[in-house]
Nucleic acid binder design. Structure first.
Lengths: 349, 349
DNA sequence: CCGTGTCTTGCATCCGTATGCAATGGCGTC
DNA sequence: GACGCCATTGCATACGGATGCAAGACACGG
């Protein structure tokens, strides 16, 4: 490889080191180190003197060297794969912000079907991150996950992988799906349908099983179950039209809000159905779009802030370190009823 | 600070080092290092022997140590602030993927108004990232930026900061906005309006100035200019209604697609206007939602892939290193006409 | 058979900070 | 005034890999 390389060090003058600073001040390098280490044994006035002088000469401790000697990076690897669903970018943003608040940086690992997992995950190991948060286990087997996270704190968010021995934090999909079924029943629906995204994901399996089971318990008819194939607007659109073709239903539960948005538009604008009069629509997640007046989507809100708080907490207190018993935290969400499924009597619009 | 700390090293057995591996194989540590360094001077069979053995004992070079001795991290810091607009998460995802493809990892720095910039940016310096990509300069002054990126490669995406001496890659907002104005004119609109998001951003200023100028050139009437205050659906909705209140227009150009989506829904569902018959709507960016049949938003597509390719290229070839002349790359986008502004005669739907 | 050049390999040292241990100094106590 | 204790500080070395330099191995030409 003879590609043009990044200019050599002669170009960017190296930043000042602790040793240089120490020499200038006539103290030892250890003193400088301690001046920047909270709780280290150093006289307050020496610390101040060093810090002040450091400011003047623009000295900043080199985090890389610190990582090496402490064997602690203060970096959390975030493994991510499918970002079609706006729910995840939003989650990642809040997550990285929360991590920053406790002094942790986020190193992004974007996994794609196309790219070779081997190599990507090997990067994950080489970087010695303190912890790994896996947002999407879609395309990762338990075995792969176990290998990738071996020996370090690891945590799954919104996924369960049975054979990976990893702790996880998830929304209570079962309660959520049952709540949707109950809501359909209570508002008089009897012929319902379910639309899945990626049928093999645990997210989908949990939602589907819980919904189907509850539907049966309540004595409603499950007149269609369509696998949209992906979590996208377009897939939701197609699924809705397929359900209409197959004879229709009076309520559809989509595995997430993006599917529901597509389905809702298709029902209204292509199938000519009235929503919610003819057919009720519900999604899952409560992404931003769900509250837009045009959609006003009934959905089950994932407790995003709580999920993040618990995840960050587990990383901080070390309860997701290898050797610790694995824990599965299921956090309750909240049913949000909007006019895609039910118009409040006192709120005709 | 006596918060529960992460378990000590005794818990996680340290991974094997190059020196250990070398001793086991009866070679020198240098040999191991060279076995994993592309282009290093080492006999092919020795390299294979080492690599194979490394695989067996699960040795992975420690990237931290490597960073320290090479003073090169292979990490790019990505500075981000407002993620309301789905355009940016999508951009970041693609960007991080492209960076990965050339061996660079992405360290996310999420800047918020609330958090103290000082501290966040100081982290940016301490981590010694090879390069910094700033996606959002909204809340960063030129001076701050200069300080934060001092001595390392830096690049702005979709922002221009006059006094920061930074190279940047942006979409040609001027051409885009003029194209929208031309399109309005050609389809018979004469009374137009403009809705800005954050009025002080360079993005907005460029789009607004170009649009207003072109409107005047064409002899159209600019009957309203509304500052929505933020880039959100809700803000777009409010802005559209305000324009209607103020006497209306026959075409509105929103500073981005999210605003346009809100505006479009408000016009149709609250103001009772027919779009595009009574009023045309156009946005900017071409986010996913713009192509949904419900919105079918006329917009100016940002050349995302090209922007990323150019940005990654500049980082690879070092042309955005300090000392190099700063460059501003304006990439052409593409006008996408959909039925929010004009219904093709042969395409009544 | 020796000189010269090329290819490999090991040795020693460096990257910049953290930290155990010993040395120093000050202070209170008896 | 001597002793002991504690708070500070410096010294030396560790963290794990990269790399300049020199030495060794080998081939080839003369």
């Amino acid at each position: 490889m003879d590609k043009p390389e990044i200019p050599d060090d002669k170009a960017k003058r190296r930043p000042i080191t602790a040793r240089q600073l120490a020499r200038m001040l006539g103290v030892s390098q250890s003193a400088v180190s301690r001046a920047f280490t909270p709780g280290a044994s150093i006289a307050p006035d020496l610390r101040n003197r060093i810090r002040q002088f450091a400011e003047e000469v623009d000295y900043h401790p080199n985090a890389i060297a610190s990582m090496l000697s402490k064997s602690r990076t203060n970096i959390v690897g975030i493994v991510v794969s499918d970002m079609q669903n706006p729910f995840y970018p939003a989650l990642i943003e809040k997550l990285s912000r929360s991590l920053q608040r406790v002094g942790l940086q986020s190193l992004l690992f974007n996994i794609t079907k196309g790219s070779n997992l081997e190599e990507q995950l090997s990067a994950l190991r080489r970087y010695n991150v303190d912890a790994v948060i896996i947002i999407s286990a879609t395309i990762l087997s338990g075995q792969t996950l176990r290998w990738a996270t071996e020996g370090r704190a690891a945590l799954l968010i919104n996924r369960v992988v049975e054979d990976a021995d990893l702790s996880c934090v998830i929304c209570d999909n079962v309660a959520g799906s049952r709540a949707i079924a109950d809501h359909f029943y209570e508002t008089g629906r009897r012929r319902v349908a379910y639309v899945s995204g990626l049928s093999h994901t645990t997210t989908n399996r949990e939602r589907q099983n819980a919904f189907v089971t509850r539907v049966a318990e309540l004595g409603m008819v499950l007149c269609a179950r369509v696998d949209a194939g992906e979590y996208s607007y377009e897939a939701g659109r197609r699924a809705a039209l397929e359900i209409v073709d197959r004879g229709g239903a009076d309520a559809i539960f989509f595995a997430n809000d993006i599917l529901a948005a597509g389905g809702l538009d298709a029902l209204r604008e292509e199938a000519g159905s009235r929503v919610p009069e003819d057919i009720a629509v519900a999604g899952f997640d409560d992404i931003a779009l769900a509250s837009w007046p045009h959609y006003a989507l009934t959905t089950f809100r994932q407790p995003v802030d709580e999920i993040i708080a618990v995840a960050v907490g587990m990383i901080e207190d070390g309860s997701c370190y290898p050797g610790r018993p694995i824990t599965v935290k299921r956090l309750p969400g909240e049913l949000i009823v909007r006019s895609s499924s039910y118009r409040m009597p006192d709120n005709p619009e």
